[in-house]
Design a protein around this nucleic acid. Structure first.
Lengths: 141, 141
DNA sequence: ATATAATACTTGGATATCAAATTAAATATT
DNA sequence: AATATTTAATTTGATATCCAAGTATTATAT
């Protein structure tokens, strides 16, 4: 066999993980939301303040995409922006109180996701799996 | 550590694999094409004739999505349809000569993709990797 | 000091995608 | 046989996404 179905499986796993996350986000009141919105929360929990371009780089999306994603989260009251004193072309995006309030939920959901993912998989298998994912990713870059 | 970045890596690998495929498809004259279009070719190489619903199930897309994807490939001359004698609601989709002509290219590209993916990875590692992908997928379903 | 280039972001246009509604045909129920 | 339900496909409407083009600001080069 020259080929296998690993890429197909990767696509399927991604879909299932996304569906899981969307369902969990819905439970905490985040509706009509894409996984990319979730990614934005994650990078802001970690970094507090970021420009549009920084967010785009961290979540691997086009800047114009991030514009619309962030605008939506602003409209919903989870994010806000302020002037960047160092560069008037850009503004700084940050979490509002309402946005910060979701951190515990996100941590919990994230934990649940990985518990589900690795159910019945031994620690050393998991480590090899991660090693191989990293290797494969670098093979493609 | 409760969590890792495996899902993120899976997303990144998927993106890179998609980009690779889009680039390769462009080389053989298939432009403005999505990976899902490629998936349709693959299932038709394997099955010759399929209804819209059958294609949708095999490529894991909504039927309305498949409608537009197939219409596009028809307009480009790669696919055609004929009446389904068993059910007048549905029609049967099949590859034209032009579409069939892409089979060798697809096989070559597919081979190239997996060679790139598994570069520097031992056979037994690859097998465990596939086992784990299957396990993880079933964990999510 | 001024022109040019680079950067940050937005806008506009296109497509993939899905969900919900619609239409038509096949199947099941009464 | 008449009606109801299910199914196949499409249409409609919405959003995520990208790319290309545009605007404004900052950095660099002449």
């Amino acid at each position: 066999m020259n080929t296998d179905n690993s890429i197909k499986l990767i696509n399927l796993i991604r879909q299932e993980a996304n569906n899981f996350l969307l369902k969990e986000l819905k439970k905490i009141g985040l509706e009509n939301i894409a996984p990319s919105h979730g990614d934005i929360f994650f990078v802001l929990f970690k970094n507090n303040e970021l420009t549009m371009t920084e967010i785009a780089n961290k979540i691997n999306r086009d800047r114009s995409t991030v514009t619309t994603l962030v605008r939506k989260l602003m409209k919903l009251g989870y994010l806000d922006e302020k002037e960047n004193p160092e560069d008037r072309r850009s503004s700084i995006i940050f979490l509002t109180k309402k946005g910060q309030g979701l951190k515990d939920d996100f941590d919990r959901i994230s934990k649940k996701l990985y518990q589900m993912e690795y159910q019945g998989i031994k620690e050393e298998e998991k480590e090899l799996f991660l090693k191989l994912l990293n290797k494969i990713y670098s093979n493609f870059k």
